[in-house]
Nucleic acid binder design. Structure first.
Length: 441
RNA sequence: UCCUCAGUAGCUCAAUGGCAGAGCAUCCGGCUGUUAACCGGAGGGUUGUAGGUUCGAGUCCUACCUGAGGAGCCA
């Protein structure tokens, strides 16, 4: 009777017993009549021990010289061993090689260091490395946690379309698609559509891919990225700032609780995440300008910040470096922000909007605002931004029929994952990143 | 679109304008506790492409291609 199948992650439950592992050969060290194959199965890695005098000659020969990433079904007895990184070793008794990687064409990704371009060309294989697998588990946890957060607070998931007839905020960064005899675009935000579902259901959110044809080549940009966007009827800017703070602290807490080992494997400094507790600092745009100009005067910031403009990337990095927690920057000048943002009644030149800047220089992970409720003002803003009115007729309807104050935000999943994992680049946060000049594999 | 940097063996990288090399991977051999194992040996090259300077170019010059980091813009 074959031993029961166990994942490597749960192998400790079978200490002293025989188990079957279904996986791949991660590495092999040989020492004469002892073989030390290391197996992986997607949940972890475990070192096996094959002693020549403990198995048949055929069995020993099948493991000796076995090539990296050959698929194997292994049977062996689980033994606790302080020398093993995971705490357990497997005394191998049976090995079935399911598919052997040929020596003539060995697995290209070795355990040694590789360059970015090579790894990206082999992304379909790079995913097998323990670090990449850990990152994807953290991503899955963050997605699950974000959905739990909204589901548990009375939000309804409403999916906006991916194919859209017009721009949300201008056409320069849209991917065009042929749609029969019409021109369509891939969505760059579900926001306008979930404003409609919020008027139907009250508290809604969307989670899906968005597309931006920005010619950005930085560690923070993808052309295809996933956003989670809540939209709340009768909510104000203050309400969604509280919501954003609650969401972020919930995500960090959940990852620390459930993906601690993965975060450690990635090399994350957990002490920095432990400090991410509400309340988060909140600074107005005016205060931010003061901080940035003082920093420039002291020589801490190269360029002098000019009031009235949007915050540049170095500005955001400096601001966020002043705090251990994410910082909420609110009430930017209306003229540098999107057309649909409600002006501050006390300062009509400012928009009721907020950007959340992640610590450690990870930059903007959330952008949100209270939306214009007035039909006339919204129509005027569409005109001022030089946008055609016809495609926005349905959007104006939302103000014509029972308009209410409402607000929402969008959080880029990949930037959140990059920050929580402490990664150098967002390209590692999604299985197959889409970037400027990168469409393969 | 702009700025900066880099392209040499399958991979990571060396090589003052003067014989193109090392480690890993692959192949052969050795080792009963290895931890990116180690030790001995072998094979592996149109130096990104096209021109140019020079007695001689991986190295200097020009253009192009590819990649990386950044700016702007954004999540």
């Amino acid at each position: 009777m074959p031993a029961p199948v166990s994942s490597i992650a749960e192998v400790g439950r079978h200490e002293g017993q025989s188990v079957t592992i279904q996986g791949w050969l991660y590495n092999l060290r040989e020492s004469g009549k002892l073989l030390f194959p290391i197996f992986r199965d997607g949940t972890g890695i475990i070192q096996g021990v094959v002693a020549k005098n403990a198995v048949t000659p055929e069995m020993f020969a099948s493991v000796k010289g076995l090539t990296q990433e050959s698929s194997v079904i292994v049977e062996g007895k689980v033994r606790a061993d302080p020398r093993a990184p995971g705490g357990y070793e497997l005394d191998v008794s049976q090995v079935q090689v399911v598919a052997r990687v040929p020596e003539s064409d060995p697995y290209p990704i070795s355990l040694k260091e590789h360059g970015v371009d090579f790894l990206m060309e082999h992304r379909h294989l790079w995913l097998r490395s323990p670090r990449q697998a850990a990152i994807l588990r953290v991503r899955a946890e963050i997605v699950k946690a974000a959905r739990d957060f909204f589901d548990d607070r009375g939000f309804t998931l409403t999916d906006p379309p991916i194919l859209t007839p017009a721009a949300c905020e201008g056409t320069t960064t849209l991917f065009p698609v042929d749609y029969f005899d019409e021109q369509a675009f891939l969505t760059q935000s579900g926001q306008l559509y979930i404003e409609a579902t919020a008027m139907a259901l009250g508290r809604v959110y969307s989670f899906g891919p968005t597309f931006r044809a920005e010619k950005s080549k930085t560690r923070r940009h993808l052309t295809e990225f996933w956003m989670i966007e809540p939209e709340v009827a009768y909510a104000t800017l203050e309400d969604i700032m509280d919501l954003a703070e609650g969401l972020i602290s919930f995500l960090v807490e959940r990852c620390l609780k459930r993906r601690r080992e993965d975060l450690k494997a990635i090399g994350r400094d957990l002490a920095k995440l432990e400090k991410v507790l509400p309340p988060f600092p909140r600074v107005s745009y005016d205060e931010a300008v003061r901080i940035l100009q003082e920093a420039h005067a002291k020589g801490a910031l190269e360029n002098k910040f000019v009031r009235g403009g949007d915050l540049g990337s170095p500005d955001e990095t400096f601001l966020s470096s002043q705090f251990d927690q994410p910082v909420l920057v609110h009430r930017y000048p209306a003229k540098v922000k999107a057309f649909y943002m409600e002006p501050d009644p006390n300062r009509p030149d400012l928009a009721l909007c907020v950007d959340v800047l992640a610590p450690e220089g990870y930059g903007e992970i959330i952008g949100g605002s209270q939306r214009i409720a007035s039909y006339e003002l919204l129509r005027q803003r569409i005109r001022e931004h030089g946008l055609p009115e016809a495609p926005f007729q349905w959007y104006l309807d939302l103000r014509k029929y029972g308009s209410v104050p409402h607000a929402g935000f969008g959080m880029g999943i990949e930037r959140a994952v990059a920050w929580i994992c402490g990664l150098e680049h967002v390209r590692e946060t999604i299985p197959f990143p889409r970037m400027l000049y990168r469409l393969y594999p």
